[in-house]
Amino acid sequence: MSDRPLSPSPEGWESVTTERPVVRWTAITVALVFLALFLLLPLVIVFVEAFRRGAQAYLEAFQEPDAQAAIWLTLTVAAISVPLNVLFGLTASWAIAKFDFKGKSLLITLIDLPFSVSPVVAGLIYVLLFGAQGFFGPFLSAAGFKVIFALPGIVLATVFVTFPFVARELIPLMQEQGTSEEEAALTLGASGWRTFWTVTLPNIRWGLLYGVLLCNARAMGEFGAVSVVSGHIRGLTNTMPLHVEILYNEYNFVAAFAVASLLAGLAIFTLGVKSFLEWRYGDSLSKRVSH
């Protein structure tokens, strides 16, 4: 900071490490107009459209049993898939960050793989495995167990698309923290479990919360992958984003945007908590470059 003037430069002086005010304000204006147009306006329109016919019509959208079933299904799916990926994130980061073994970087690359797979392909692979014409399809239908067009398929697709979130937050964080604290605890006689609960977990709690937050937002909002495996059965296999799609395609715009406004609210909440964590506990999060 010392090389930056703390007060505005005196008359006639210009800092050599910034642009002229005209350039600066032009750049700020262009950037802000672009962001307002591309990011803010879509968020605003969701609420404007949702309340177009007033609060009464807005609330009526949630009275509908299908809407309630969709909200319930979304919560159920998130409640199953997020803990699964937390468990994976914890075990994978423990194995990767606390030990040295061959093939570690390959493993890290594979964990990131689901991020580079199209959501539609993520749904498709489970249809190919468990669908009526899939590899295990005949076996499953003989056993009377339904995966595709049912809850298990939706959970599987959601787990796939949210797979890396917790792990990729915890791996760099635990690598930065090293192993010396755990080694000290073990030397003093603590068991492995106790070391994890009392030493490792407190060190990674904010990073874990950060990963869970992003994982949950994606789990509740996933559309493409879930759409492929769900079968769109109203009141049964429609999650909130799928319900939004159905209402929209039926030209029931107020109800579509009303349900969408709940998801938009979730996004705003996620961004708020995320920014708060970055601002307040930035030092206890991993120093990653991007998501």
Binding site: L32, L35, L37, L39, L40, L41, P42, L43, I45, V46, E49, P119, L214, A217, M220, G221, E222, F223, G224, M240, P241, L242, V244, E245, Y248, F253, A256, F257, A260, L263, A264, L266, A267, I268, T270, L271, G272, K274, S275, H291
Partner: peptide
């Protein structure tokens, strides 16, 4: 504004889809 940059990560894609369609439709704001 820095926090808003992450909105496309956080906003479910279906919501973004119908919002953008509403904005850019011939009778939309833009």
């Amino acid at each position: 504004i820095d926090a808003v940059v992450d909105l496309p990560f956080a906003l479910p894609t279906a919501v973004a889809g119908i919002a953008l369609a509403a904005l850019y439709a011939p009778n939309g704001w833009i």
